[in-house]
Design a protein around this nucleic acid. Sequence first.
RNA 1: CGGGAUGUAGCGCAGCUGGUAGCGCACUUCGCUUGGGACGAAGGGGUCGCACGUUCGAACCGUGUCAUCCCGACCA
Length: 578
Amino acid sequence: MKMSKLFVQTLREFPADADVVSHKFLARAGYIRKLTSGCYNYLPLMWRVLKKIENIVREEMDAAGAQELLTPFVQPKELWEESGRWEVYGKELMRLRDRHDREMCLGPTAEEVITAIARDGLKSYKQLPCNLYQIQDKFRDEVRPRYGLLRGREFIMKDAYSFDLNEEGLDESYKVMAKAYENIFRRCGLETKMVQSDSGAIGGSVSHEFMVITTTDAGENDVFYCDGCDYSANSNHAISNLPEADTDGSKFGFNETKIIDTPQTHSIEELCEFLHIPSTIILKSLVYIVDKKPVIALIRADKEVEETKLMNVVGGIDIRIASAAEIEELMVEKGFNAARGFIGPKGMDGITIIADKTVKDLKNFVVGVNQEDKHMVGANLSDIPAIEEYYDIRLVQKDELCPQCGKPLKVTRGIEVGNIFKLGTKYSKPMNAVYLDQNGKAQPYVMGCYGIGISRTAAAAVERYHDDNGIMWPVQIAPYHVTIVPLNNKDELQMTTAKDMYIKLLNAGIEVVLDDRDDRPGVKFKDADLIGFPYRITVGKTIVDGNVELKTRATGEIDTIKPDEAVEKVIKLVKEAL
RNA sequence: CGGGAUGUAGCGCAGCUGGUAGCGCACUUCGCUUGGGACGAAGGGGUCGCACGUUCGAACCGUGUCAUCCCGACCA
């Protein structure tokens, strides 16, 4: 490709609406252009990157025995009613009506559609196991799209679905996919961590996420991991053991149960300061609204509630902390007069109360009693409504102890590029998707599903590999492997040398861009760095001595060598990487 | 959903005490230059998001609307 004909417009400045590194560089280097909020045009350079990722995914999925197909982007309401998700999926599901007023949606995922396909085609145990996948646009109407390609509304996803005879078969399919995912991300030049995670709206029992560990702030997930063993988990799923802490209020003089004045202590910090106590002897009561109904969560006050865990315990879909107004409403309903800071579980009959495991060990603690400017001190579990079961609804924090080996846990940010779920019969049962076993008896498929964000993977690669000057693509997914830059177009020797190398590289199957533009060297260098060609061959004045320069984008390393050597070296480097 | 802000050329911005639009980059042509986003000259490109109102006159004032971005969504 000649640079003069390549469809790309690099910008001297970052677009004003870009916030994270990948968005900034992809927009500035001419890879993407926003069409509307959360939806991006993939321009020719971007499309080449995406196709490369897709092809790696295809090869590895095919090698793992999966079969590719393609389903429509628009899906009918009826299928979603079969699985029950039409009601529960929420606002992320982009719903629409056609001219006949029939309801449908844009596919955010395709469990229903592919389960329906399987149920028509997989009638016998002899046909199982089976794994079907597609690479397709998905649409999720995010509350707030942001971070460019990392959290768009429309995005490209590979989604695969496995159908097995039983749990053992699923375990095997799951392992095969986990291995395929490792291969895929390695071949994309990306280091990933496979971490335990919550299964969220897709449902199911076991799930893992593949995270690209990033130093930029674009990582949306906190990943806890252990240096001492292989434990690692998303914060929405992580568990830990707690270090020793003072949880008995008698050490701080609370030996008898009484209600005392604690004026203006609306926060835990203020309460600690007022009473001269650590937060570890306070029972914190948080009011959440889960699916429009109040739920009170109890936890030791130095710890935070992990909302996903709480939601899983309650069994809701939508969760948020209650507003001041909602708390007031609840207080009025229960006949109390207290604002945030003074809420407690006592007297909250009829309200769901969920207690964290940290509550169990509290003795002679401090707790709100739904009276403004007052707290109960020296309280014990007998002083609050009986708690039948203690759950883990706690957000793990750094330096808590690994649940497997006891070492302090570490935390890092990660971008989720892939996830795998064991679904079991969550979809096959309600959708009556069954096969006949050896005895002629109908059995629901035991399913798994496996996603990879193709466009997100590309963005994650930029987050991971860039410097101040631009992108540093891994060779495997770079839009082109190498650019040849003659510094002065009017210098005949430079141009003929550059063109000669260009032809040789093309003939060797290398993806090469010849920068034939009549621009000054600085312009060409800046663009080459910004776009992120893994290799750059510069043909400058040194050509009179028979030398060109081969520069490696990622390392900045420069070789001064003969043109033919440069050609050979690039061929070798690229072939090795692929 | 709540709050904040912004919509003026492909990109980044100015103009906003009302008088019919400008700068830098990019683009076209010519000259000159050629190892890290040169320089000079001459050009092309905009119903100032949209609608309604106020006014002799609106990018500018008012109302509404749409869009975009950011922050937050209450840790008691």
